[in-house]
Simulated assay, not measured.
Amino acid sequence: MTLDRASGRLIVWFSLLVGLLFELMPVPDTIVPFRPDWLLLILIYWSMALPHRYNILTAFVMGTLLDVLLGAHLGIRSLAYSLVIYLIVLNFQRLRTYSFLQQTVLIGIVLCIYHLIVFWLQFLLDHSEFSNQLLWPVVSGMILWRWIYWLLRRIRRRYKVR
């Protein structure tokens, strides 16, 4: 493995670590319902950009790590991340050719699927109730997708991540 390849992988794993830290970062109670899924958005970008390298296994590992750090039931987010990233990897060539508005809508659908899977699993395990606040992160994720995509793409091109 050359030094360029190793540094590219380190950049990707560093961005995933930053996404994990953003997931764990404390925020005011008024902002909590609108907190976007930082880690999932970053995983979606890397699985669209480099699906042969960052795919379902990466999503499963990061989801398990997030479950452990959040103290949630082990496997809820890892299963949801894996299913969502599977959908992205399955259609990555189509997603790349879509316009930015179409991509944003599809990212919103994928984020909605993620939140519904997490809700369904939590309902089965804890009998949690559905609330309208469940889908606010979908809206904030759709709004932030443009900037996350732009930032990670610049990083990928500048450091020649392959």
Rank of each mutant, 00 (worst) to 15 (best):
Y86A: 12
V105P: 02
L83M: 12
T64K: 01
R157E: 15
V138D: 03
L50A: 08
V138L: 03
D37V: 00
R157L: 15
I107V: 14
L57M: 11
A59R: 02
L16Q: 13
T30G: 11
P26A: 09
D126W: 07
T104P: 01
I85L: 01
F34L: 10
L10G: 09
G75P: 10
R157A: 04
D67Q: 07
R9N: 15
L66M: 13
I88H: 04
V105S: 05
I155E: 01
M25K: 14
G108K: 04
D29L: 07
L39G: 03
R156Q: 14
W46E: 07
H115Y: 06
V18D: 14
F22S: 10
L111I: 06
R96H: 12
L43S: 08
G108I: 02
P51R: 09
F22P: 10
V89N: 09
R157N: 13
S140N: 00
G141W: 03
L111D: 02
Y149M: 07
S82W: 04
R156Y: 06
S131G: 11
W136S: 09
L57Q: 08
G19K: 04
Y149G: 00
R53P: 01
R53A: 15
H52F: 13
G75I: 07
P33E: 05
V118P: 02
V118Q: 01
L40S: 01
S128A: 08
P28E: 11
L50W: 05
P26L: 09
V110A: 15
G8S: 15
S15E: 07
T104M: 13
V161E: 06
C112P: 05
L152S: 08
L144Y: 00
A72T: 12
N91K: 14
R96A: 12
I143D: 03
S15K: 06
S15H: 06
L24G: 11
Y81G: 02
L24K: 09
S128M: 00
V12Y: 12
A59V: 02
I44R: 04
S99V: 04
D37N: 15
L106F: 12
D29I: 05
F22N: 06
D37I: 01
I56W: 09
H127G: 08
F123Y: 13
W13C: 11
S131I: 06
S128K: 08
T97V: 06
R96I: 00
A6V: 13
F100V: 11
L40H: 00
Y98N: 06
T2G: 14
M25R: 10
V118I: 08
C112V: 07
M1P: 12
S128D: 06
V68Y: 15
L65D: 01
Y98R: 06
Y54E: 08
E129F: 08
F130I: 14
E23I: 03
I11L: 13
Y54D: 10
L17Q: 01
D37C: 05
T2C: 09
V161N: 08
F123T: 06
P51Y: 06
L3F: 14
V18Q: 09
S128L: 07
F119G: 00
M62S: 11
Q93I: 02
L116V: 09
S7Q: 12
L21G: 13
M25E: 11
T30P: 03
R157Q: 14
W38I: 00
D67I: 08
P137H: 05
I56S: 14
P36E: 01
L152Y: 04
T97A: 13
V110G: 07
